[in-house]
Amino acid sequence: MINWGNFISQCFNGLVLGALLALISSGLTIIYGTLGVLNLAHGAMFMLGGYAGWMAYHYTGSFIVAVIAGSLFVLVVGVVTERLIIRSFYTRSHEDQLLVTFGLGIIFVETVRFFFGSLSKAVPPPPPLLGITSLGFMFYPTYRLALLGIVAVALLALYFVLYRTRLGMIVRAGIEDSVMVDSLGIDVYRIFMLVFGIGAMAAGFAGIVNAPVVSIAPDVGEAILVQTFVVVVIGGVGSFPGAVLGGLIAGEIISITSMFDPGYSYVMLFVAMTLVLVLRPHGLLGTAGRE
């Protein structure tokens, strides 16, 4: 028997989770699409955004400052990481790239643990967004509703950057044909640095806006990273629309399955990924180009 009120609420949960996954996955996917590097430290970027935001909140008490600080900090971390380390790995194998980003992820997580300890930190939502809102047919936490809007705006902003700016054109051209970009005479390295920073910032932004929902701890990124992989595989590597679609699908699968038995939500997510791999090996919206 399905309780329809519960079903709709769970769909809403799925939407919020899905939007968040979509945002994080877009960051991962544009970095990979442009630079050809799968950033295993992406989960750590999500975590760093949360902590940087928490620090800012701690000193200013302003949620908006926290969001800005969290995002900018991760942008800087991304740019610096690219400049110092990732850059020398473009010419090396995918496997080496995976190893180094994996190692960087550990360093980020353990550094945070070193300075902040393992206890979770809470960032409360801004006062106007406290409490619950009635949607007529159900009640829903106000901040989670707002989160849906915030993430949607962020995704739109990312869309704008990718599809309406010169940088975005280059990035998308790079995803489709990296050789072409090389021959355009563009300073590819500068672009790469920026893309890595923006991709990381997407995760960092998600990390701080999600902090009021679940509070932050050094290892929050790991679980998110694995879900992000599934999203990217479902949506298609390197595809921004794919990441958004994949995120929403993953969010809904997790939520709707948990209506019946939360223990199986992850298993169902995996079943979906397998189905996609069998039926559309390059993901729902991916192209055969990159591997």
């Binding site: 769970q10 949960n13 919020v16 939520s255 948990s258 209506m259 939360p262």
Partner: peptide, 8 residues
């Protein structure tokens, strides 16, 4: 995130 459990 306990939202799914709490919704139930």
């Amino acid at each position: 995130d306990f939202s799914q459990y709490l919704t139930n």
